[in-house]
Amino acid sequence: MLSKILPVVLLLVGAGAGVGAGMVLRPAPEPLAPEAAEEVAEAKEVEPYGPDNPAPMMEYAKLSNQFVVPIIKDRNVAALVVLSLSIEVTEGSKDAVFQREPKLRDSFLGVLFDHANMGGFEGAFTEANNIAVLRNALREVAQKDMGKEVVSDVLILEIARQDY
Rank of each mutant, 00 (worst) to 15 (best):
N130I: 03
I5P: 01
K73A: 12
V68S: 13
V89H: 09
P31I: 05
P27L: 06
P51K: 11
K103L: 14
P7E: 01
N136V: 03
I72E: 06
E158C: 00
L112A: 03
M58K: 12
A116Y: 05
A33F: 09
L12Y: 02
M118Q: 13
Q143V: 02
G92S: 01
E38L: 15
Q143R: 13
S84R: 15
F125K: 10
V81N: 04
K44H: 10
P34Q: 03
P29Q: 09
E45F: 02
E42M: 14
L134G: 05
A96N: 11
L6T: 10
K94L: 12
E47I: 01
E88F: 01
P48I: 07
A41S: 15
L32T: 01
R139V: 15
F125Y: 13
A124C: 00
P7D: 02
R75V: 08
N76H: 13
Y60G: 06
E122T: 10
Q66R: 13
K73C: 00
G120C: 07
V82D: 05
K148T: 08
L83I: 03
L104Q: 07
V46T: 09
P31W: 07
V111F: 02
A41E: 14
F121G: 07
Y49M: 05
N53T: 15
E59S: 12
L10N: 00
D153I: 01
V13M: 03
G22W: 09
D145Y: 00
V13Q: 00
R26T: 05
V97N: 06
K103F: 10
S3P: 00
L2W: 11
D163H: 09
A128N: 02
M23Q: 10
N117L: 11
N76R: 15
G120Q: 05
V150L: 12
F108D: 02
L157H: 08
E35K: 11
A61L: 12
Y164N: 14
L138H: 06
I156Y: 03
G14I: 01
I131F: 01
K103S: 14
V40W: 04
F98Q: 08
K4E: 09
V81C: 06
A33N: 10
V151F: 06
V133D: 11
A36V: 15
P70N: 13
K148N: 11
A55Q: 13
D95C: 00
L85C: 08
L104N: 09
E91I: 00
E91S: 10
L85H: 05
V133W: 04
G123C: 10
F67Y: 12
H115L: 02
G92W: 01
A124I: 02
M146V: 03
E35Y: 11
K148R: 12
D163N: 15
G20P: 00
N129M: 09
G18V: 02
Y164Q: 14
A15W: 08
F67R: 08
A124F: 08
V46Y: 07
G18F: 02
P31T: 08
N76Y: 15
P7H: 01
L104K: 06
N53S: 13
V40K: 13
V19R: 08
E42V: 08
L109H: 11
P27Q: 05
V133I: 15
